[in-house]
Design a protein around this nucleic acid. Sequence first.
DNA 1: TTGTAGGCGTTATCAT
DNA 2: ATGATAACGCCTACAA
Lengths: 355, 355
Amino acid sequence: MLDKEAGKAAGAAQPAGQKRALRQPSIKDIARLARVSHPTVSRALQNSPLVNAQTAAKIRKIADEAGYRASAVARGLVTRRTRTIGLVVTTVADPFASEVVCGVEETANDHGYSVFLADSNADPVREKKVVQAFAERRVDGIIVTSSRVGALYLPLLAEMMVPIMLVNDQYPGAFVHSVMISNFEGMRAASEHLVGLGHRRIAYLGDKFGYASDTERVAGYRAALDAAGIPAMPELIVHGDGKPEAAMTAIEKLLTLADPPTAVCCYNDMSALGAMRQIRARGLRVPEDISVAGFDDLFFASYTQPPLTTVRQPMRRMGQLAMENLIKLMSGEESVEQIKVDAELIVRESTTMRS
Amino acid sequence: MLDKEAGKAAGAAQPAGQKRALRQPSIKDIARLARVSHPTVSRALQNSPLVNAQTAAKIRKIADEAGYRASAVARGLVTRRTRTIGLVVTTVADPFASEVVCGVEETANDHGYSVFLADSNADPVREKKVVQAFAERRVDGIIVTSSRVGALYLPLLAEMMVPIMLVNDQYPGAFVHSVMISNFEGMRAASEHLVGLGHRRIAYLGDKFGYASDTERVAGYRAALDAAGIPAMPELIVHGDGKPEAAMTAIEKLLTLADPPTAVCCYNDMSALGAMRQIRARGLRVPEDISVAGFDDLFFASYTQPPLTTVRQPMRRMGQLAMENLIKLMSGEESVEQIKVDAELIVRESTTMRS
DNA sequence: TTGTAGGCGTTATCAT
DNA sequence: ATGATAACGCCTACAA
């Protein structure tokens, strides 16, 4: 009977011989069916106390049977709020990003927000297009993850006059809100762990030079070594790009050293994946010949062989935090400028005592 | 000067002492600035040939300087098309889904569509909420990946009267369009590969019983064994849930058999991950003691130890195909009902000759 | 408690 | 080639 009613309602306002699919019922259709005015329908559906309980119930019943769904686009036009946010990621096909997306989406949904997702592919042109699309869609706020071109398009975002939240931004600016991980403390913990296992020649396999997260992590690494009285060894610091392939090339430089490291801290788990593979390719063993530590604790970290010692980022939680605080900002409340989240060292089997 | 102009335009239509951020300039603001009517602005910005080239240029310049962005919500209201689609995934925190999302998003963006992303978490309640949100947002179409509750809410979708594309749906229905992988042929190829290596006791570690993809894959497995004259061995067929943890439990049943298998075909790479871990936990080696094959070819498949033999699904391409065909459907064109994509066996090192 | 009127920012349909 | 005017579907006054 649901279909029948829906058909009637839509059909009623529909001229004969329509090409495209039947229109969805509008608030006026419901009003006609319920023999009231459309504002009354509007009130009834919003549970306004200003409407008679009985008529409200009747209206809700009729609306339900007709399959009526208030148009968020019409509502957005008049209220000037779309209850929509834009989420920019470099690529969802990256486990870190997808976890963040999950957290954002979940929280958004719970609060009646819908999420526009857009990949930038770290391409500035595309990123600009994406933000323009968000502007035209009149999103109420924006979340950007791991942006590597932040500085480039931040003015564009500002122009839109909506709140912006950054998650692990690579170029922290002064005027925006962000959720950041304790890069320094996290990598320091991993490095201290290796120092504690007796390692002295500890390498760092980083991300591209110059990114904030890499800079902070390398600083944490240095701090741990300094504290242990281990002098700087520039030849033990190499750079990948956060992905396995580049890590394979990068670690090769370490393995071919006259005096190779006995342990390596990787910028992230993806790099560790490549590093471990290349180490094995050279006939070496993890952790007997070389200990490997990662960062992120992606889902596969406990399934690598050996299971990966790493620094956990609560990625989903970070997404949730970003969204929760964006909601505050969107409702005009103030929110802390920078939310810092703790990283946690997870010791597994890819690290062991220096042999 | 950009900011100045924008401020002027917005300020002009703004009463003094506003609480919320300044309004974005509207088409009327631009019309006023350009001393033309707003329909002319509309035409100019759409590159309509009906407007004088010079005035068009002037209008575009002014609009640009004012930072004007036409409101997609207002446009959507009048055109009755939002150029928006809804994408439902069980969870983006699954590498398969995120690759599909990537493909969809990319293609959507290239065609001027924006994507609403929603996780269902395989929760029917949530899935229903999500679809209702899409209905209210007046999306032009919907894509659903790997749905496990399809049958439950498909009527709901139909009610919305927009085209729907399913990607690897678990309950293929007659009335919807879909992109599917060759489950049967793919798993048959993997099984044939194992048969070719001399294996006779080949197990199948599946997904939850009853899902279409699992049913098809197990059929492919059986077909390969049948062709080789290997009799059915019901004790060699076990079920996980497509995730590593459940696979660990499931494969345990195989390993504790009096006569354990020498090879196992896994429903997907995530299952293979758990299987390999549990095999090692029991002190057995892959592939020397037992060969393992996966399905999907997720990014980590070439980084497992040993690298995983698997059946590749062109996940991103499948997302693109889904979106491309949805676009056709949305413009009223017809499109094939079911798009079938070929799977490809990728032989790596997790499978070897029976010892 | 309910109805009437107006407007949100566009595009579409007429005129001119 | 351009302008006036009317939708689109909803919400928010204000009037009754």
